[in-house]
């Protein structure tokens, strides 16, 4: 019998045969996340003269199942910034509740008059995303960062590959196909931001949320909106929570062929 301490409490080799170590070194290569599990759909955002409007609906889907209907996907970071996330919800929760919370607390306790603004939060997030993709273990999200920076509205996105992109109108997920063309009609380029009022921007984003609900099967009719507005270096963030889509009209559905109780 083996009396050596490392064998204590183990099945005896002479009774059970030698210990099978194979599970410690699997024959397969290490596998990380291959797909998102619980997901959030589009985030929509638009710059205007004096700020940014950003919105995301409150649904978290499990595959095609509408699993959680009260999942907010926007987070305020510090005083200048709102981040919106689509894609994997648990990755989003890691970013929002752990990574960004830690970042903000560490910034606050310095107490030296410096604050993280939108471009700093955006830079940080894009580095994290790119770092994770280089570990072949990406955070499965597309993130939009909206805020007020250097006396100007700020809007930019980063995704699970660490790609960075900026435009006056941005949307993630289904919205990248459906909302962006609508928003570009309102705001084709950076110059036109100056011509867009706050009301016009809110209206345009509301319209996008509605169109997305019409056509995106993973969306819902309840959403959260944040309006980041600034004047010089003063920033105000207005939150609209649990907003329901107004004035829906499903008349267009009759025109659509290919599903439902249609005869022809």
């Amino acid at each position: 019998m083996n009396h050596l301490p490392e064998a204590w409490g183990r099945p005896r080799d002479d009774v059970y045969g030698a210990y099978d170590h194979s599970h410690l070194r699997p024959s397969m290569p290490n596998q990380h996340t291959q797909e998102p599990i619980v997901t959030g759909t589009s985030v929509v955002a638009l710059k205007y003269n004096g700020g940014v409007v950003i919105a995301a609906d409150n649904l978290a889907s499990y595959g095609s199942l509408a699993r959680f209907s009260n999942m907010e996907r926007l987070k305020q970071v510090g005083t200048h910034t709102v981040v919106g996330a689509s894609g994997d919800i648990s990755d989003m929760q890691y970013l929002f509740d752990t990574a960004l919370e830690d970042l903000v607390i560490k910034e606050e306790y310095q107490n030296d008059g410096h604050h993280l603004r939108a471009k700093h939060v955006y830079s940080y997030l894009s580095r994290v995303m790119y770092h994770r993709r280089n570990k072949f273990d990406p955070l499965w999200n597309v993130l939009l960062v909206a805020g007020w920076d250097d006396g100007k509205p700020f809007l930019a996105s980063t995704d699970l590959l660490g790609t960075t992109f900026s435009a006056p109108a941005l949307a993630s997920g289904f919205g990248a196909s459906l909302a962006v063309p609508l928003l570009r009609r309102v705001c084709p380029d950076e110059e036109s931001v100056a011509k867009i009022s706050r009301e016009r921007a809110i209206e345009a984003v509301e319209e996008c949320m509605k169109v997305l609900f019409y056509r995106d099967a993973r969306s819902t009719n309840k959403y959260t909106m944040a309006i980041v507005s600034g004047e010089d270096n003063k920033v105000d963030i207005e939150w609209k929570k649990d907003v329901e889509l107004q004035k829906q009209s499903w008349k267009f559905a009759e025109e659509i062929r290919g599903y439902g109780a249609q005869i022809v």
Binding site: H114, K119, H120, Y122, S123, Y124, R127
Partner: peptide, 12 residues
């Protein structure tokens, strides 16, 4: 600069 796109605050 790399992580935050910000020149480091002197105090820090």
């Amino acid at each position: 600069r790399l992580l935050y796109n910000r020149p480091v605050p002197i105090a820090r």
